[in-house]
Design a protein around this nucleic acid. Structure first.
Lengths: 343, 343
DNA sequence: GTTAGCACTCTAGGTTTCCGAGTGCTAATC
DNA sequence: GATTAGCACTCGGAAACCTAGAGTGCTAAC
């Protein structure tokens, strides 16, 4: 870190990383000079590589084998060497086309987006849907069902629907339900769902309501509808990961799949990615929330209007085609933002 | 097939299968006599096994190695040898407990059930949700959203909600929406969704409606809401399959995962399972809809009241603990039926 | 500073060997 | 006649061994 990295050092590191990304094999001085356009002798390259190893940017799996980039190297590469290519026209068209195709509800679009990310990157696609709480309230309805059950339906302005079945001890009169709904719809106009929730909770405390049991009930019902707050996650293309040679052995694979079965870990990580804006890159164990050695995550936030509402990205091996994937993630996020805006 | 299978033959076949299920290794005459309580010499067993091989019930991977049951053997075993144990009290309790836990909407319960099936069987759990069409109609609502969009919400008596976003060219007056909904709610009372659909389609043809453009519109809107007919599938515990030694190599695994990514194949198979009632067992390539060599599927249908509405089951290797898994599937299906009934 | 040369080191992959579990067959036994 | 013991034979898989190739570090020459 304290050592200065020469220009040539950078060039060689870049070559090593790119070679390793392409082949998944430790790369040696020989092959490097041959494949890349470095007009240096293997011996020179060897010296430089030796330096890079000292700096903790490369390691050799054993004496006398090529070298492999460390996470630190990837970090450096991503931050200050890699120049992100522009996304190709083709990819752009492909992404655009497939996003349009699924002009259905938000959930479906996002699921399709996740699949899209996975196929275009050939790794795994992941999309975290907007938190319900960030949506604008539009309407709430209560529907009486047979058997002391009430269906509460919460509709946001973007057209997402959250519904919840609630058991009640005694029947409530349908007209009362309508009255409740009307009252609430009036009160809650223009708020976000998060604000709605706050409002409900505070009203439930208020004196006025204490004596109006019907009202108390309405508030309780609505609160229950909203309370369910586990953000949706779309994770597609898991099979792609099986393609990667580094996960060829069954043990590793199992570990990875188990890890993804518990989505909570991934959610935490994505939550963190949402704090910052734009493209972010998590390399290997840097983010030791998810104990994902050997895996990297490229994310970008997306927004409706000017609010960041969700995050999407690609999960692949640390040995991932960053230059290729970053623009895909970036472009897709922007596209989704645009789609959501016009809605 | 034409040969008669002696009683002793059956006993030995059973032993072979059970041994193979336990160890995943070809089983030889020696080990068989030792581990199982057969008081026969290896030589005798060998003779019998040789007969079984002739009948196509066993094969040896190569000369001079133990033998492995064929699909035909599993079929025979399942049909006429295996006696299904009663489910243990413990399992019963476990299943019951976990089903209760998720007393939320039908979808959530079924998803949880799928997970439950996977963990208790230690294979993969699968649940096909009831087709929307089989539900009883309860109510339809139209909600106007900003930007020429209408949200149609279809509610069934069981409390499932199907919603659909519809773009319209020109705004429809909110009051008209209410009128439409009222009319439909009156007309469609007591029908199943499937019947509702038929009715809508026929009404759209009728003279009377031809001249009432508003009505025509209402019908069209509702029809769109219903038309989306891809039954939901919950598939959980894919990682469990990685545990199985027969899928240790990466190639097989990839194949399997790819196969499950396209859910349509599985859906076809489950659809077929729904034709018959109760527990059904598909062994390996018998069901060559899904090209699933080496995989078996145990299903059972579940119902609301007296109508079969869905199917659930367990997918595992052909070398699967049938005796253990069948009662789990059976019991779970019955439990789900009971849960849905009381709703 | 760069490169050629050299001795040395490992690993991956191919052979070889060898053990053990298994088989089929025949002849003896119950 | 069914069952079993005995025997010669087979084959796969693990262990041991070898080899070729790619790589390294170092030193000396350019």
């Amino acid at each position: 870190m304290d050592e200065q990295l020469s220009d040539r050092g950078k060039r060689i590191l870049e070559a090593v990383i790119e070679d390793y990304i392409a082949t998944a094999e430790p790369v040696g001085s020989r092959t490097l000079t041959r494949s890349h356009g470095l007009d240096l002798s293997p011996a020179t390259v060897r010296n430089v590589m030796s330096d890079l190893e000292e700096m903790g940017l490369l390691v050799s799996p054993h004496t006398s084998s090529g070298r492999v980039p460390t996470e630190k190297a990837y970090r450096l590469y991503v931050n200050s060497i890699l120049e992100v290519k522009n996304i190709t026209r083709d990819k752009q068209d492909e992404i655009r086309r497939r996003c349009r195709l699924a002009g259905k509800d938000v959930g479906q679009v996002l699921k399709e987006t996740s699949r899209l990310l996975s196929t275009t990157s050939s790794y795994m696609g992941v999309v975290m849907a907007p938190r319900l709480a960030s949506n604008l309230f539009h309407q709430i309805e209560f529907v009486k069902l047979p058997g002391h059950r009430i269906l509460a339906i919460l509709i946001s302005q973007s057209g997402t629907v959250q519904n919840r079945l609630i058991e009640v001890e005694e029947d409530i009169h349908p007209e009362d339900l309508v009255r409740m709904a009307n009252y609430l719809n009036e009160q809650l106009q223009g708020l976000t769902i998060a604000q709605v929730r706050e409002r409900l909770l505070s009203e439930m405390q208020s004196e006025k309501v204490r004596y109006d049991s019907m009202m108390a009930r309405a508030l309780a019902l609505s609160e229950q509808t909203i309370s369910d707050e586990s953000p949706q996650l779309f994770l597609e293309g898991q099979a792609n990961i099986l393609e990667q040679p580094e996960f060829a052995d069954a043990g590793r694979m199992r570990e990875i799949f188990r890890a993804f079965e518990k989505k909570s870990l991934l959610l935490d990580l994505l939550d963190r990615a949402m704090q910052a804006q734009g493209v972010q890159i998590f390399i290997g164990s840097e983010s030791h929330l998810l104990r994902m050695e050997g895996m990297s995550l490229i994310t970008s936030t997306y927004m409706t209007g000017k609010d960041t509402v969700g995050v999407l990205g690609v999960i692949g091996p640390t040995r991932m085609g960053y230059g290729r994937v970053i623009p895909i993630v970036d472009y897709t996020a922007k596209l989704i933002s645009r789609l959501l805006e016009t809605e």
